[in-house]
Design a protein around this nucleic acid. Structure first.
Length: 432
RNA sequence: UUGACCGUAGCUCAGUUGGUUAGAGCGCCGGGUUGUGGUCCCGGAGGUCGGGGGUUCAAAUCCCCUCGGUCAACCCA
């Protein structure tokens, strides 16, 4: 193979692409049900947008696709969408609260693995302009409702609070001091992490580190009264809604802008290191960091590709059927098929046909495989008599009516008759 | 960025002490008499053995490089 999709990217072909679209549509309706409106933002931004929100994180420091355009602007393909949304908020200053959802590809220069791509899709939602813990609850509930609505059952919701800015800094200092004191017990890589960001050590998977982490200071002791009250209200809200969650004192998220609430959704159906399907939290300082008025916000993003992997693993959310309603078999040259197909498609019927003047046997075979419920047969006899043979395909037998497998109908009545049949059999639209 | 395993027809894979025209199943195409699908039978198309270089009389098979995939670390969706 000579040319192929760039590393970490892929083509999503027919049944899978329909499934992806169905998932996005499911998210759209869940989000809009809760009053979130879609934002379609640019695929690339001035690099400052991302630099300002996460200079210390790998995502913006070394995983960004960046380039200069012909006008010498320094741009980056978006590695995440919360920053873009915050930028859009600052630019447009919509009335509060501003509730927005989004979907689309994002780009990170990483080594690809299963469930990790250089171009990947996320869906997400953000709520700007409210401090209310009920806002956190609404956002988490939206993520939960959507995921369980897909049919996923083996989901774990982990929640934590990182406290306010001052709490977080005090905790970070205490954590650093603690780890410094026991740095001899840490793994070599753990010591490196300590130098960069002690918080990250909390979710280390190395046994040496875990032993040290086990008796590390916990964030709870550093919460301000307000932050503690906020978190308590969030947990109470989740309980009131019957959303199961587990408190994870070690949960820290990948981006540094989180304050107070942080949460993560993981799937037990996914094995390996990539079991997180999404997460989010509160980012009360983010808008200000981007030059806007001090505005609180809370939101989340879900990895579409991983969600679909999880659906595969749980055997839920199948691809929608691409089956045709009708297959036109024309052995008179194909012109009739063109006319019939177009006529029927104009009435909203899904029509498939063959090309290249293939034999009746071959066309019937294709009709069978297309999943069509009916075949319309046009041969020399039909053409001469001004009729079309309507045949019910095997596997799509009539339910109770005593209608014959095949019958002739006048050419002029085809559209009306097929429309009637299709409308009357919307039963099993999801033949897989 | 580090390490491990892997890369043969559209798909899933056989094919190692290196040796004649590289195989199977599925899929695809055609046929099994006059215009009808599944199964069955027969036939056919389709492969730079990921790519490049090297060793050798001879390489899919050995060596090096490279690209790609998978897994793990790192990081994260």
């Amino acid at each position: 193979m000579s040319l192929q999709a760039p590393r970490g990217t892929r083509d999503i072909l027919a049944p899978d692409s329909a499934r992806l679209r169905a998932l996005v549509e499911a998210f759209a309706s869940a989000a809009e049900l809760a009053g979130y409106g879609q934002v379609v933002s640019p695929m690339f931004e001035l690099i400052e947008v991302f630099r300002r929100v996460g200079e210390a994180t790998d995502i913006v420091s070394k995983e960004m696709y960046q380039f200069r355009d012909p006008g010498d602007r320094h741009l980056a393909l978006r590695p995440e969408l919360t920053a873009s949304l915050a930028r859009a908020f600052v630019q447009h200053r919509p009335t509060l609260p501003w509730k927005a959802w989004y979907e689309g590809p994002q780009f990170r220069y990483e080594k690809p693995q299963a469930g990790r791509f250089r171009q990947f899709n996320q869906v997400g939602a953000e709520l700007f302009g409210s401090d209310d813990p009920q806002a956190d609850v609404e956002v988490i509930a939206l993520a939960w409702r959507f995921c369980t609505g897909l049919g996923l059952r083996k989901l774990r919701l982990a929640v934590n609070s990182l406290g306010d800015r001052a709490d977080r800094e005090a905790y970070l200092a205490a954590l650093a001091a603690y780890f410094e004191g026991r740095s001899a017990e840490l793994s070599a890589q753990g010591r490196e992490t300590l130098g960069r960001n002690p918080l990250r050590l909390l979710d280390s998977k190395r046994p040496e580190d875990r032993a040290v982490v086990a008796s590390a200071p916990v964030i709870d002791d550093y919460w301000s009264e307000a932050a503690a009250a906020h978190f308590g209200a969030v947990l109470a809200g989740l309980e009131a809604l019957g959303i199961p969650f587990e408190r994870n004192q070690r949960l820290v998220r990948g981006l540094d802008y989180y304050r107070r609430t942080a949460f993560e959704l993981a799937s037990d159906a996914l094995d390996g290191a990539q079991d997180a399907v999404g997460g989010g939290g509160r980012y009360d300082g983010l808008v200000a960091d981007l030059g806007g008025p001090d505005t609180p916000g809370v939101g989340f993003a879900l990895g579409v590709d991983r969600l679909l992997l999880a659906c595969d693993a749980e055997g839920v959310f199948p691809a929608p059927s691409g089956a045709a309603d009708v297959f036109v078999v024309d052995v008179t040259g194909g012109g009739e098929a063109t006319l019939l197909a177009e006529e029927l498609r104009r009435t909203g019927v899904r029509v498939q046909r063959a090309f290249d003047g293939r034999s009746m046997k071959a066309q019937m075979k294709a009709a069978d495989r297309s999943g069509a419920r009916w075949a319309l047969l046009v041969g020399d006899d039909e053409l001469a008599d001004g009729v079309v043979s309507l045949r019910r395909m095997r596997g799509h037998e009539a339910t109770a009516s005593g209608e014959s497998i095949q019958r002739q109908i006048p050419r002029a009545a085809v559209a009306a008759e097929v429309a009637r049949l299709v409308a009357g059999s919307t039963g099993d639209g999801s033949t897989q």
